[in-house]
């Protein structure tokens, strides 16, 4: 291996500082948590229910919105039309607005006075303080992650392969499902995981739409404000551990699928 030049040594040092900034607080939190308090939290029904709710609402929201995101991402990747840049801007809006403001916007959108709220009310559903409301708030702030990944994925599929499929007597629908979608699937799955993860970690928007039932980030916040840092820490550690297990597993699944394809 070549000897590292001074410039690279400086870069390595700066990069190391950055990694430390991320890893140190998390490690500190884990190390400050005693095994007994951790196992206590693992058996706490309130915590377990909140984790289940967080995972389900985020996953459900991501899955539901995937059906709306993927078709638009395909259109944006393949077609030129007026207003395309405006649509891109709209999709990225949730990244730049404060999430508490996003929560207020979603709350107004699903409140009983709104069209959606009234429609839900007519079937006996109150979206505020409801898992569906939570899922909507989570999705609102995390849509750009799946959308941008899916659009990039479709853009990377050679148009020629789609044309060949049409020449081989496939209908446009069949071409989409047998060529475009499978070939963009890696990007889409990565985007799906990112949207799901971002949804799970959302606090600001969700706390405004639904304080109860409590998702884990809200529960950790409540325990912290009511009982202090030491009380909230084990629940936070457990939630981080579960998130990590989920994402590593999902990422491995996506990777294995890719390897099988190229085997």
């Amino acid at each position: 291996m070549n000897k590292l030049q001074p410039l690279y040594l400086v870069f390595v040092f700066l990069g190391g500082l950055l990694l430390l900034f991320i890893v140190a607080p998390l490690t500190g939190m884990v190390l400050s948590t005693s095994p007994s308090s951790f196992f206590e939290v693992v058996q706490n029904k309130e915590v377990i229910d909140s984790i289940k709710l967080t995972i389900l609402t985020s996953f459900g929201g991501t899955l539901f919105f995937a059906f709306l995101i993927i078709p638009l991402a395909y259109l944006m990747a393949r077609k030129e039309f007026p207003g395309k840049k405006i649509i891109s801007g709209i999709i990225d809006l949730p990244i730049v607005i404060p999430h508490s403001a996003a929560g207020i916007a979603v709350l107004g959108f699903i409140s009983r006075d709104s069209v959606i709220g009234k429609a839900a009310d007519s079937v006996g559903l109150n979206l505020i303080d409801h898992p569906i409301g939570i899922a909507l708030a989570m999705a609102f702030v995390s849509i750009p992650f799946l959308f941008n990944a899916a659009r990039d994925g479709f853009e990377a599929v050679p148009v020629r392969l789609e044309k060949v499929a049409l020449n081989l007597k496939a209908s446009p629908t069949k071409t989409f499902f047998t060529i475009s979608l499978p070939l963009a699937s890696r990007s889409i799955l990565s985007g799906f995981i990112m949207m799901f993860a971002r949804g799970m970690s959302e606090f600001g928007a969700v706390v405004i739409v639904a304080y109860h039932p409590m998702i884990t980030p809200v529960l950790v916040y409540e325990w912290f404000t009511s009982y202090g840092l030491a009380y909230a820490r084990p629940a936070a550690v457990l939630f981080i551990a579960i998130c990590l297990i989920f994402f590593v597993t999902l990422r491995l699944l996506v990777k294995n699928k890719e390897q099988q394809r190229h085997a």
């Binding site: 020629r160 392969l161 044309k163 060949v164 499929a165 049409l166 020449n167 496939a170 499978p182 070939l183």
Partner: peptide
């Protein structure tokens, strides 16, 4: 429509489906 022509086409880059 492309699908209704009795014509096959083969490209220089083969365009085989990689998956």
């Amino acid at each position: 429509k492309i699908q209704h022509r009795d014509i096959g086409i083969v490209f220089q880059d083969h365009a085989v489906f990689p998956h």
